Amino acid sequence: MLLYLMIISLIFQCVSGFLVDSTTPKYAGVITDKHYIAVIDLLMEERQARHLLEHVVTSLQQTVQSLEQKDISKHAKDISALQLQVNGLVATCSLSQNNFGVLEGKFKDLEMNYTLLKDENKKLSQDVATLKQTQSVVSMEHLKQQVQATSNKVNQLKYNNMVRNQDIIAISNITRQNQLDVKTLGHKLTQQITSIESEFREKSQNDTVVHKELTNALDLKIANLETNQTFLGIQVAAIAQKTYPVALTAWNAGGDVSIGSEIKFNEVKTSTGIRNLSAIHSTGTFTAEEDGVYMIAVTVNSGTNDSGFEIHKNNITLSQVYIQGKVGDNDQSGTSVVSTELRMGDLISVLASAGDRKQGIVHVDKGWSTLSIIKI
Results as ranks from 00 to 15, higher is better:
M1A: 05
L3I: 07
L3Q: 01
I7N: 04
I8Q: 07
I8W: 03
I11D: 10
F12N: 08
F12T: 02
S16V: 15
D21W: 10
S22W: 03
I31Q: 00
V39P: 00
V39K: 01
V39L: 15
D41T: 09
D41V: 07
D41Q: 14
L42I: 09
E45T: 04
E45F: 04
R47S: 00
H51R: 14
L53F: 00
E54Y: 04
S59E: 05
E68W: 00
Q69T: 11
K70V: 08
K77M: 03
A81L: 08
L82V: 10
L84V: 11
N87P: 02
N87F: 06
T92P: 00
S94F: 00
Q97C: 04
N98A: 04
G101N: 01
D109Y: 02
D109N: 04
L110S: 06
L124S: 09
D127R: 02
A129L: 10
S139W: 03
S139K: 06
L143D: 01
N152S: 06
K153T: 06
V154M: 09
V154K: 08
Q156E: 12
N160A: 07
N160S: 13
M162A: 13
V163A: 09
R164M: 09
N165I: 13
N165V: 11
A170Y: 12
R176F: 12
R176A: 15
R176K: 12
Q177I: 14
N178G: 03
V182T: 15
G186S: 15
Q191E: 12
Q191T: 15
Q192V: 12
F200E: 14
E202C: 13
Q205D: 09
Q205F: 11
D207C: 01
V210P: 02
D219Y: 02
Q229R: 12
T230W: 02
Q235R: 12
V236E: 14
A238K: 12
T243W: 03
P245K: 05
N252H: 08
N252P: 04
N252S: 15
G254F: 07
V257M: 11
V257H: 05
I259A: 01
S261Q: 15
E262Y: 10
K264L: 14
K269F: 10
K269W: 08
T272I: 10
A279S: 05
G284L: 12
T285Y: 14
T285A: 11
D291H: 02
G292V: 10
Y294T: 04
T299M: 12
V300F: 01
V300A: 03
V300I: 12
G303Q: 12
S307K: 10
G308T: 04
E310R: 12
E310H: 03
H312I: 13
K313V: 03
N314F: 10
N314V: 07
I316L: 09
Q324H: 08
Q324D: 02
Q332P: 01
G334L: 04
S336T: 06
T340Y: 08
L342E: 06
M344C: 11
M344K: 10
A352T: 06
V362C: 06
T370K: 14
L371Q: 02
S372D: 05
S372F: 00
I373C: 03
